[in-house]
Design a binder for these strands. Structure first.
Length: 97
DNA sequence: CGTTTGACGCGGC
DNA sequence: AGCCGCGCCAAAC
């Protein structure tokens, strides 16, 4: 097997329902990642052409992580009906377990 | 094989 | 409510 950890992360990622979001920390807790950093790393290294909803992963403070694709991510979430308040936070009810 | 590097999180202040 | 510092650990150098 290649990387059980990354497989777990990608599996969870694929499970996130449209219109909902989850956090790096929650995914880390659901898998053997041990730390959110590894989840972030796994997303950063996703191969081009994947069909996984990487944009449904946000930070524990319910904001978008600071990276080069953040603006693209914001657009994709808005397209799914995810709203941001004045401070750029997603409503807690949109969090997926 | 030692060091650096992050799409983070949390506890202190 | 927000900023700072430290811990975390696989992968790249």
């Amino acid at each position: 097997m290649k990387s059980a950890l990354r497989e777990q992360i990608l599996t969870i990622l694929a499970e996130i329902p449209p219109g909902r979001v989850t956090t790096y920390g929650r995914i880390a807790a659901m898998t053997d990642a041990g730390t959110p950093r590894l989840v972030a790393r796994a997303l950063r290294e996703l191969p081009a052409g994947h069909d996984l909803p990487w944009f449904r992963v946000i930070t524990a403070s319910r904001r978008l992580a600071d990276h080069s694709g953040a603006e693209r991510q914001r657009h994709l979430l808005l397209a799914e009906g995810i709203a941001f308040d004045a401070r750029g936070r997603v409503a807690a009810e949109r969090l997926w377990p």
